[in-house]
Amino acid sequence: MTRAADLPEVSLRLLEIFAAMMRCTTTVETAEFLGISQPAVSAGLRQLENQLGFSLFERTGRRLTPTGEANDLFEEIRPLFGILRSFSTRARDIRSGRVGRLRVMATPPLGYSLGPRALQAFHVARPEVTISYDVRRLENVLDAIQTGQADIGLVLNAERLETVNSEIIQRSQMVVLMPEDDPLAEGAFVTAEELTGRQIVGIDQASQLGRLVAKGFAQGGGQYRPGIEVRYCQTASALVADGMGVTVTDPYSAEPYLDRGLVSRPFMPTLEVSASMLTRKGVPHSGLLLSFMEELRRQLNRSR
């Protein structure tokens, strides 16, 4: 059995010089190809021959002609450089965010509006990227980011988040979604008092946005008594589209229904909400994640 100590210690750099020399005809040409000096090429070939214990090239004038042994060795290592080229290409693609796996989680308002638009554009440009996408409640998104189960979270919130990195990408305000022939649609905005006594589809007050709406009615002097209460703003918007009243919702959830006989007007008093990107604290952003974050900003700029 051949012992490891009996094998020549050949470095990858020496093999690279050898392979380049097999493709070129002179040490000068090889040096130009590798971007090193001609003496470095000559020294590398001599070192490789010393380690192997036999000659690889015969000098013919100014050219070096490969020996039979050199040709045999070159055929052995040819696949290696194909692997190295693939490795370099893969590393470049990873660095530029063109391959890999991206895990995205969002709350419903952004999960059914901004998220799909950004993912569609992102996936067209990077078809080799594997994407995991899920729409959950805020507490589920926060937990996934904190534990590393998701790379990025897209949330609509009105409260400060301390346990994750949070970047606000757009500020907006809650709106009243109603039929376009509703008398309140004639105004530039709708107040809490004007909604008192109306059939309101409300948001579950156990949620952040539900608490925000209830607070707005209290501040505006209106009575908040929803006849129907749902968990998500999207559900409330869908019920309004089916003629079940009006709702105070976020503009992202209202948007898909604005071409279906409904209109939206700002709710007064102003209830501000922020679209934010969440990432895990203490974890550097990958090239893939940075590319997706840029696509999110691009989509928001287009919609303004």
Results as ranks from 00 to 15, higher is better:
Arg78Tyr: 05
Val176Thr: 05
Gly115Phe: 08
Glu69Met: 14
Glu139Leu: 05
Thr65Leu: 14
Leu114Ser: 01
Arg63Val: 13
Gly243Ser: 08
Leu7His: 02
Ala4Pro: 14
Val28Gln: 13
Tyr252Ile: 00
Thr60Ser: 15
Thr191Lys: 01
Met268Ala: 10
Ser88Trp: 14
Arg3Ile: 06
Asp93Ile: 01
Glu193Arg: 15
Glu162Gln: 12
Ala214Phe: 00
Thr89Leu: 15
Met178Ser: 08
Arg59Gly: 01
Leu73Met: 10
Leu7Gln: 07
Ala185Phe: 06
Asn71Arg: 14
Val164Leu: 03
Gly44Cys: 08
Gly82Asn: 14
Ala4Lys: 11
Leu278Met: 10
Met105Leu: 11
Leu289Asp: 07
Leu177Arg: 00
Gly202Arg: 00
Ser132Arg: 10
Leu288Trp: 08
Pro256Glu: 02
Asn165Ser: 13
Ala121Trp: 05
Ile131Val: 13
Arg78Pro: 00
Leu239Gln: 12
Asp204Trp: 05
Arg302Glu: 14
Leu15Lys: 03
Ser291Glu: 10
Phe217Arg: 03
Val28Arg: 15
Ala40Leu: 03
Ala206Gln: 15
Ile200Gln: 01
Arg101Met: 10
Met22Gln: 10
Leu177Tyr: 03
Ala238Gly: 05
Ile152Met: 09
Glu16Pro: 02
Thr130His: 13
Glu76Arg: 15
Glu294Gln: 12
Ala20Arg: 10
Ile94Cys: 09
Ser55Met: 08
Gly222Trp: 03
Met293Leu: 09
Tyr133Gln: 05
Arg260Ile: 04
Phe292Arg: 06
Glu75Val: 10
Pro256Trp: 11
Ile168Ser: 13
Val263Met: 07
Val248Glu: 00
Arg13Asp: 15
Glu29Lys: 13
Ser166Phe: 08
Arg90Phe: 10
Leu212Lys: 09
Ala236Gln: 07
Ile200Arg: 00
Leu278Lys: 00
Phe87Asp: 11
Gly202Lys: 00
Glu159Thr: 14
Asp204Glu: 14
Leu138Trp: 01
Leu156Pro: 02
Thr30Asn: 06
Tyr257Ala: 00
Ala206Val: 13
Arg225Gln: 12
Leu271Ile: 01
Met21Leu: 09
Tyr133Asn: 03
Thr89Lys: 11
Leu45Thr: 02
Thr270His: 09
Leu184Ile: 03
Asp6Met: 14
Thr270Lys: 11
Gln208Gly: 09
Leu15His: 02
Ala158Ile: 04
Val175Pro: 06
Leu156Met: 14
Asp151Tyr: 01
Leu64Val: 03
Ser303Gln: 13
Gly187Met: 07
Thr30Pro: 07
Val175Glu: 11
Arg90His: 13
Leu195Tyr: 01
